[in-house]
Design a protein around this nucleic acid. Structure first.
Lengths: 358, 358
DNA sequence: ATTGTTATCTAACACGATTTAGAAGAAGGC
DNA sequence: GCCTTCTTCTAAATCGTGTTAGATAACAAT
């Protein structure tokens, strides 16, 4: 055999199935059958199977991902598109998604989709077939249109946490409206009437404002008129929560309670309250959203709307895979429940909801 | 042309370069040359180029990632292996890395490498050629051995933040020893003698304990004997910092200051101090590490050792790409500086170091 | 001896792109 | 008219794998 010079841009030579075949003294077909565990049914003798497996191990052969997915039309990769990687809850979602994917023989490719340019790149990668399916958190309208195109080409796409922006996309979402409702209702039950809301400016891009809708509904059901001056929007970050709270505190007639879009913003808001000498919960009750670990490590400990991040990750992965393997009729939407986690910052009884406090 | 049934596991049909060629009335070769911007030099007329580009756009043609990387020996993907996705600073690293990669025409594939099984999977993916290069945060010894094999096969591998565990791997690291030294030295200069240290249990797996070494060196230089009872190790999390601090507070003779492995642990430690009624900084000075945003939103605001997360991400990506494109002799190691960011929790003067306080 | 059956393995094609080597035609110089 | 040169394009090989259709040999049944 002539040893050619290394072609083109290749730095080194990985072994191919042909080399394994040569070492084992069989054909490439046999190597492929054995290594894909189809040797038994297709009548490759146990002795040959062992010889092939041994040869592959000796060369530490690893099939080429590119060649395999070109031939198989399957990458066994699921893309996970996230907008922020700076939230504590993402780690739980990703961990559970990883475990679920691994169990079924898939890998996760996490992509950031924070900026427009990265979204365009993600779209071109995905339509180039870099993954078999996609899980995505709330996509803005223009990106959702791209994703819809992919879905129409047969790629399973699951929207995570939020409502699906389009019927072509499946959803594994959280009952955010109910979360907003329960949080606000809790504050009402504690006697508050002037209840403010800090929302996320990013919601402007989406059609629905799920948490805010729950807030407004709870006020309406209690016969309290919503006051637009009590609603502040800001970036969903620590700094955003901080500045939104400062805005609320600048008002003549301050609210006595506030429902905040996320725990992260709520931590920023708490810092603003301390800076202004406002005692929590005595002068201002605070309820956040998400149930992140950090909420238990601030003073006062943060009351929040909790839900299972792990279930989101796991169910989203399973939804993609069951579509890919055509196991069952896919569910168009799965809705996960929320629960109010009462700690210190709201001034209520310290429990884990489901209970019916005074 | 006969329309075949869709082969095998394929859900739908994406257009191929052959279809673009047919629509434009040219050969596949021409399509390839035009779409890869080699049409000019290789004498494809402007008129033909326009026709091909138009046909590709009309079909919204996207080259198959698998076929292209099979042929080119290049995926234009850089893998980014992270151990924790729950740290606030990761977002900055990833954001900067993304921007740098995009600018050079590469994409980032973020993989979690938190669990052994995921590490094995990551290794098999990488040796299957799923990416052209790898950026990884402190790999434990067994995984580092795998990475070394990849490096010896010619794959560029860059270790991020920490010392490289092996000379075969490049490093873009932070001067963690100096950070530990500066932080501890600051506490000494403020008059503290009993200075505790909360470290990360994960360091046990690594050869070096960089921050801790700086702490010990500073004590030694000041003629203070290190007291093993003043060193507590725990998981690098909020809860870990909380429990480590509780351990330190249980001692007969409490320290008057503590240098903590990370800001995240420090926030947990601050919560423990408040629970025990220990005033910060009056009764206990605290210095963290990393400079995450959260440190500015806790009470008291956290003094910390800061460094540029963005530079780490950017330089790591550039190191991988310059190896891939063979531009220059690669640097075996790049060391980024740290700076002490003095806020409230240490009781020192509020500045941004570089200054020489009293 | 022929035919059929079973067990085991292989030759050759296909996947979709890039690239090498060279073809076809026009233009120009003699 | 013949040779060279340039411009513009293409046929065919190639990357490493998976898969289809069929080869070969051994053995049994008739």
């Amino acid at each position: 055999m002539v040893k050619r010079a290394l072609p083109h841009g290749r730095a080194s030579r990985r072994p191919t199935s042909a080399e394994v075949a040569a070492l084992a003294g069989v054909s490439r077909t046999t190597v492929s059958l054995v290594l894909n565990d189809r040797g038994g049914e297709l009548g490759i003798s146990a002795e040959t199977r062992a010889r092939v497996a041994d040869a592959a191990a000796r060369l530490s052969y690893q099939p080429s991902h590119a060649a395999r997915s070109l031939r198989r039309w399957r990458t066994n990769v699921i893309a996970l598109l996230l907008y922020t990687l700076d939230s504590f809850y993402n780690a739980e979602i990703i961990g559970a998604a990883h475990a679920a994917a691994l169990e079924r023989g898939y890998s996760l490719n996490i992509m950031s989709a924070k900026f427009d340019e990265v979204q365009r790149r993600a779209y071109s990668l995905l339509s180039g077939g870099v993954a078999d399916g996609v899980i995505v958190a709330a996509p803005p309208a223009d990106f959702a249109a791209d994703l819809k195109k992919l879905a129409e080409n047969g790629m399973p796409i699951v929207v995570m946490q939020h409502h699906s922006p389009d019927p072509a996309l499946q959803a594994v979402r959280v009952d955010l409206e109910r979360g907003g409702y329960v949080a606000t209702r809790h504050l009402i039950d504690l006697g508050h009437r002037r209840i403010a809301h800090i929302g996320s400016a990013s919601q402007r891009l989406l059609k629905r404002r799920e948490r805010s809708d729950g807030y407004l509904q709870a006020l309406q059901d209690a016969g309290i008129a919503a006051d637009p001056r009590l609603i502040a929007m800001a970036e969903p970050s620590l700094a955003g929560g901080f500045s939104a709270m400062q805005e609320l505190l600048a008002q003549d007639e301050r609210p006595s309670a506030v429902f905040v879009y996320s725990d992260q913003m709520a931590v920023g808001a708490l810092h603003a309250l301390r800076k202004h000498g406002v005692r929590v919960p005595e002068e201002m009750a605070v309820v956040g959203f998400d149930g992140i670990a950090l909420g238990g490590f601030v003073t006062p400990e943060l009351t929040t709307v909790d839900y299972s991040r792990a279930d989101i990750g796991r169910l989203a992965v399973e939804a993609v895979i069951s579509r890919l393997e055509g196991e069952a009729e896919p569910l168009r939407e799965q809705v996960l429940p929320v629960r109010l986690l009462v700690r210190e910052s709201c001034g209520g009884v310290r429990t884990v909801s489901d209970g019916e406090g005074a």
